[in-house]
Each structure stands twice: as C-alpha cells, then as structure tokens.
Amino acid sequence: MNLDKSKKRIAKKVKMGFQGYPQIAIEYFGTNPNCANEVSIKFTLEEGAPVQEERFSSKDDVRENEVIQSAIVKMIERSEAKTVLQTAGVTQSQ
C-alpha cells in the first residue's frame, strides 16, 4: 500500500474519535521530536480487558516507512477496531 494512502487512512480513523471498542492506540517514540524511531500499537478488545502491544522500530523515521504504516493499517482492519487513538507528536524515549 502506498505511504500517503496509509497515512490518510490512519488519520481518517483517528479523526473519528472514540467510537467504542475494540480500540487501537498508536504512539510514536524517538530521541528527538523530528524523528520517530519506534511505534507502539496497543490493542484493547473491550473496556477493562488486558492491553496487547506490538512495537515496530527502524533506523529511520517509522512515520515515513511504507511497510510499517501499511502494517498498522492492516492491524486496524483485521482487528475491526472501532476506535483509533494517536498520541500527538513524538514521545521522547530514553
């Protein structure tokens, strides 16, 4: 899947806000605000259920990695997530 198309599909789901469960939360991590080297995708089946987490990392910015962005879209589709949340910006990693 094309990088721009993946980013748009993720952004569209995020823009919809909370729609119920299942829910996916996306958070980017990096050593500086301009480059995210890691992404965390957390899946919650229902309220109070244990959270399942998947992480992807790259030497370059994961937000510009077509394979990783396509994988996130596939995770959203396959889990039939009603809600997709995304933390703004890049969280500083230690």
Rank of each mutant, 00 (worst) to 15 (best):
51 V>F: 04
70 S>K: 09
3 L>T: 06
47 E>R: 09
94 Q>P: 14
32 N>A: 07
69 Q>R: 05
22 P>N: 06
71 A>G: 03
61 D>A: 08
72 I>K: 02
66 E>A: 10
57 S>H: 13
10 I>H: 04
30 G>K: 06
37 N>C: 14
34 N>H: 14
4 D>A: 12
90 V>L: 05
11 A>H: 09
41 I>G: 00
42 K>V: 05
27 E>K: 04
5 K>E: 11
8 K>Y: 14
51 V>C: 06
18 F>W: 10
6 S>G: 13
49 A>D: 14
76 I>Q: 02
27 E>L: 03
65 N>M: 02
6 S>K: 00
27 E>F: 01
15 K>M: 08
25 A>M: 06
78 R>A: 10
10 I>D: 01
45 L>N: 07
47 E>K: 11
19 Q>G: 05
50 P>C: 11
19 Q>M: 07
79 S>I: 02
3 L>Y: 05
7 K>M: 08
47 E>S: 10
81 A>T: 09
53 E>P: 02
52 Q>V: 13
48 G>I: 09
94 Q>C: 10
60 D>V: 05
85 L>T: 09
40 S>G: 06
48 G>R: 09
70 S>E: 11
2 N>G: 03
61 D>G: 09
76 I>P: 00
81 A>R: 01
63 R>I: 06
81 A>K: 01
20 G>Y: 05
12 K>T: 12
84 V>G: 01
91 T>K: 13
23 Q>W: 01
79 S>G: 03
5 K>Q: 13
60 D>N: 11
15 K>W: 05
11 A>I: 07
49 A>Y: 14
39 V>D: 00
33 P>M: 08
19 Q>L: 05
36 A>N: 05
7 K>Y: 03
1 M>S: 10
56 F>I: 01
64 E>V: 01
7 K>W: 05
84 V>A: 02
86 Q>A: 12
8 K>P: 03
26 I>T: 05
4 D>G: 11
18 F>G: 02
5 K>I: 09
29 F>L: 15
73 V>I: 11
19 Q>H: 03
35 C>L: 15
41 I>D: 00
56 F>L: 08
40 S>D: 09
90 V>D: 00
48 G>S: 11
67 V>Q: 09
37 N>A: 14
47 E>C: 04
49 A>S: 15
84 V>D: 00
48 G>P: 06
